[in-house]
């Protein structure tokens, strides 16, 4: 990689000198102006809200082009080293990077319609932290290019404790419900997936066909220790008692930018 050249050891340089394979040339004017690119207003509010994927990918194309290595340095073959969640039938195809999994694989294209700015809401290239300079936006999450709350919407914990009738994690109780999520969700949380980065109908179809698809996101790939506080809908009359404690602070509307 050229970009590592500053750290090449003197031996490497010496070898280059010996082999004479350093290309001649005046680098002036050919060097892309990375400084200007990384401070392009497209990276910040408000321009980022209107950024087209094509504009982002103009520079960052590699996030969709790059694939994982076919094998790790120690020789682990990518195709043979699947995580348990990748053996699930909701998981298809070869090993892919997370960007491709969310944007270009067939499952992603069928169920979701993520755009770059669905997740990326700005990023301070000076320090990857909000508030390092006077003129950048203040609502960035320290050290992350994406607010993890967005990931949490799908990758939160399967919180059976707030789900009426469930006595344990889904894998333990699925039998009781015939392995079928929709058994109950015909009644509860009937307004689902009405967000602009999801293909609502396709998701519902997939869920009706096989509840594993539901669990694939809602708990199956729960990277986080907490659940997402899903929007509270008007409480069903058949539910007993008053509004439960856990539901009191929940929002009643989704963030506007996800519902437009």
């Amino acid at each position: 990689m050229k970009c590592r050249s500053a750290l090449i050891l003197c031996i490497y340089v010496a070898l280059l000198l010996l082999s004479g394979n350093i290309v001649a040339g005046n680098t002036e004017d050919k060097t892309p102006d990375y400084l200007s690119a990384r401070w392009n207003p497209l990276h910040f509010k408000p321009a980022i809200d209107y950024a087209l994927d094509a504009q982002c990918l103009g520079c960052h194309q590699e996030v969709l082009q790059r694939k994982p290595l076919s094998q790790s340095p120690a020789g682990i073959k990518s195709s043979e080293s699947l995580a348990w969640y990748q053996k699930d039938e909701t998981y298809q195809g070869e090993q892919e990077t997370f960007h491709r999994r969310h944007m270009v694989t067939s499952t992603a294209k069928r169920l979701m319609k993520f755009k770059c700015n669905t997740c990326h809401q700005g990023h301070d290239p000076k320090d990857e932290a909000s508030g390092t300079t006077d003129t950048t936006q203040k609502d960035l999450v320290l050290r992350k290019a994406v607010n993890p709350d967005i990931c949490l919407m799908c990758h939160g914990k399967f919180d059976y404790k707030v789900m009426a009738g469930l006595t344990g994690d889904w894998p333990e109780v699925a039998d009781t419900f015939n392995g079928d999520c929709v058994t109950c969700h015909k009644e509860f949380r009937t307004k689902r997936h009405k967000l602009n980065f999801l293909n609502e109908q396709e998701i519902e179809k997939a869920g009706e066909k096989d509840s594993n698809t539901c669990y694939g996101c809602h708990g199956g790939r729960a990277w986080y220790a907490i659940a997402y506080p899903y929007v509270r809908r008007p409480w069903l009359k058949r539910m007993p008692g008053a509004l439960p404690e856990w539901a009191k602070d929940r929002p009643t509307e989704y963030t506007k930018r996800f519902t437009k």
């Binding site: 050229k2 970009c3 050249s5 500053a6 680098t27 990375y34 990384r38 590699e62 996030v63």
Partner: peptide, 14 residues
């Protein structure tokens, strides 16, 4: 050629 600072975390062939 690495005259830029900060993390350039995506692969680039400058």
């Amino acid at each position: 050629e690495t005259s830029v600072s900060r993390s350039h975390v995506f692969g680039r062939d400058i």
